[in-house]
Write a protein that binds this DNA or RNA. Structure first.
Length: 563
RNA sequence: UGGGGCGUCGCCAAGCGGUAAGGCACUGGAUUUUGAUUCCAGCAUACCCAGGUUCGAAUCCUGGCGCCCCAGCCA
């Protein structure tokens, strides 16, 4: 079965199929619940495509919900960036944009219900004491001395917590479950903590008590009528508490939490903490630096939503943890860009070529196809004259037969133009090649004249018409495949493995004139080289392109092996 | 055994008791005015290991081994 005839299936979809079949569920409602404390990355894309994709395929809904219960770390910049990125991927939450903070009042009332039923209590242990009482992984914890307060006292104390009578850290509301549970998450987890002086981006200073994620999440899901609450593996241990909350309040809805493995990608890091560090410590130029695995970054790099979705489809959804090779991601972008990116010519490292037998006052406007395999993409005009630039690496004074480019005394085809032959090499006093003199073969456009066999095809740009451009060559951010694991193993910082070659900026490139019309974000294939897109800095006289991903280069691999 | 998970080709991943899909990577070869694309062919007698059940096991059972997660008033 091929990929296209085989719709994406995974264990979560199988569970949903069974739930629908058995009648356990009659609809499908999912949600994507980011905390607005950073930008979304490729790992989030996996979750977005999963959640929104399921909603689409099952004729259900997917809510966008900000998990904003920790105001100290969250802000509106992130709230806005996240919405931008989800939209960019092509998904719509319609009017279903929610915030966990929308439910602060509900959450508070359910807490009251738990207290009244003897299921929650106000604890005065400080953070350190709480940790001590919790026990360890192998030893049970012990009950807090405040565990057996009366309902009335708990109600009174919680009310005072809410009204601001206590300082930060002096009291918390805890669930009363089992301090000896082998699952640490069930040892009377904290439900509410006190936070004075923080301004929440949604609720301002209205509250001074904030609910914890583990308490908030199941209730938010239930209030939204979520059927399947999909999250990552590290929450597996939290599921018993997720269920406990819903089983002990009168919310009347019980979504099912299902966990899947996070995405790990070679040559990058995927934790928000580390990405934040790269930004805040200036290792990269912001969250949208094209080297970042953030959606904002890869978008600026030139990755397309279609490529991202294809990638998410190909990596699949399972509970096993692994690390995906960069080649898989790169193949996905190439696959999409190969179809949609118009072809252009650009010389990154120019070598001047004077065509001695071409009239110096003549200019031809050649009509070239925008895509050799797709006529519907049209054509554009490219000027040709007696002075052009070719790539330095496309010329050698001497070379063996395998070198399919220009060699002194031999001829080569200029892409979509004439065949030229190198007659002379002009050098300066230091033996550096300054320019080369060639002669062109008239009537050689379109086919090879009798007896002429060019070694290969090289790209070019008219020296008199070409436009100077800045080209940013991006490569993998890290020098090692698994920077996290490596840093751990060698007791170093993950930043020690940042690649010195992640960005090379070229400022003397020459591109064909039509490229000045590009809009930021437009993708092109610079023939024989790579896919590029116009950067955000492009325009208003500046010509700036980012390399998205190189073309597959089997020649480079063969050369590599030779060494 | 403190508890919870995971282990199928180099990487990702189907498989759900009937005799190992697919993608990426890789290797050949064809076509090519991008050393690109496209196309064709090859690529796990084998499913962490060892026993067992069965006519038949990657799939069931038992026992091992390896790896990941959990002791935030973070999410």
């Amino acid at each position: 079965m091929s990929e296209t005839t085989n719709p994406p299936t995974n264990f979560i979809r199988q569970i949903i199929d069974e739930d629908l079949r058995s009648g356990k569920r009659t609809n499908v409602a999912t949600r994507f619940p980011p905390e607005p404390n950073g930008y979304l990355h490729i790992g989030h894309a996996k979750s977005i495509v999963l959640n929104f994709g399921i909603a689409e395929d099952y004729n259900g809904t997917c809510n966008l919900r900000f998990d904003d219960t920790n105001p100290g770390k969250e802000n509106m910049e992130f709230v806005e960036a996240i919405q931008r990125d989800v939209k960019w991927l092509g998904y719509s939450w319609d009017e279903r944009l929610y915030y966990a903070s929308n439910y602060f009042q509900n959450l508070y009332e359910f807490a009251l219900e738990l207290i009244k039923n003897g299921k929650a209590y106000v604890c005065e242990l400080n953070a350190e004491q709480t940790r001590e009482y919790r026990g360890t992984l192998k030893e049970p914890g012990k009950d807090s001395p405040y565990r057996s307060r009366s309902v009335a006292e708990n109600l009174d104390l919680f009310e005072k917590m809410k009204s601001g009578e206590f300082e930060d850290g002096t009291k918390v509301l805890r669930a009363k479950i089992d301090m000896t549970s082998p699952n640490i998450n069930m040892r009377d987890p904290v439900l509410y903590r006190i936070r004075h002086g923080v301004i929440h981006h949604q609720t301002g200073a209205e509250w001074c008590i904030y609910p914890m994620y583990d308490y908030t999440h199941p209730i938010s899901d239930a209030l939204e009528g979520i059927t399947h609450s999909l999250c990552t593996l590290e929450f597996e241990d939290h599921r018993p508490f997720y269920d406990w909350v819903l089983d002990n309040i009168s919310v009347g809805c019980h979504p099912q939490q299902i966990e899947f493995s996070r995405l790990n990608l070679e040559y990058t890091v995927m934790s928000k903490r580390k990405l934040t560090q790269l930004v805040s410590e200036g290792f990269v130029n912001g969250w949208d630096d094209p080297r970042m695995p953030t959606l904002a970054g890869i978008r600026r790099r030139g990755y397309t939503p279609a490529a991202m979705k294809l990638f998410c489809q190909r990596i699949g959804i399972t509970k096993s943890e692994g690390i995906v090779e960069m080649e898989l991601l790169e193949n996905c972008v190439r696959e999409d860009l190969n179809i949609i990116a118009p072809r252009r010519m650009a010389v990154l490292d120019p070598l001047k070529v004077v065509i001695t037998n071409y009239p110096a006052d003549q200019v031809e406007q050649l009509t070239l196809p925008n895509h050799p395999q797709d006529e519907s993409m049209g054509t554009r005009l490219v000027p040709f004259c007696n002075e052009i630039y070719i790539e330095q690496e496309d010329f050698l004074e001497e070379a063996n037969k395998k070198y399919k480019r220009l060699v002194k005394g031999d001829c080569v085809r200029l892409r979509n133009a004439y065949i030229i032959q190198c007659d002379e090499v002009v050098k300066d006093d230091y033996d550096n090649i300054v320019e080369i003199h060639c002669s062109y073969i008239p009537d050689s456009i379109g086919s090879n004249p009798e007896g002429i066999k060019p070694r290969g095809v090289i790209h070019w740009v008219s020296a008199r018409h070409g436009v100077v451009a800045e080209v940013r060559l991006y490569d993998r951010l890290f020098a090692v495949a698994a920077p996290d694991a490596m840093a751990n193993k060698e007791d170093k910082a993950f930043t020690d493995y940042l690649s010195p070659d992640s960005l090379h900026t070229l400022t003397h490139c020459v591109v064909e004139p039509s490229l000045t019309d590009a809009q930021p974000g437009d993708s092109y294939q610079f023939e024989r080289q790579a896919y590029f897109c116009a950067d955000l800095d492009h325009g208003n006289g500046k010509v700036v392109f980012n390399r998205t991903v190189t073309l597959r280069d089997t020649w480079a691999k063969i050369e590599q092996k030779g060494r």
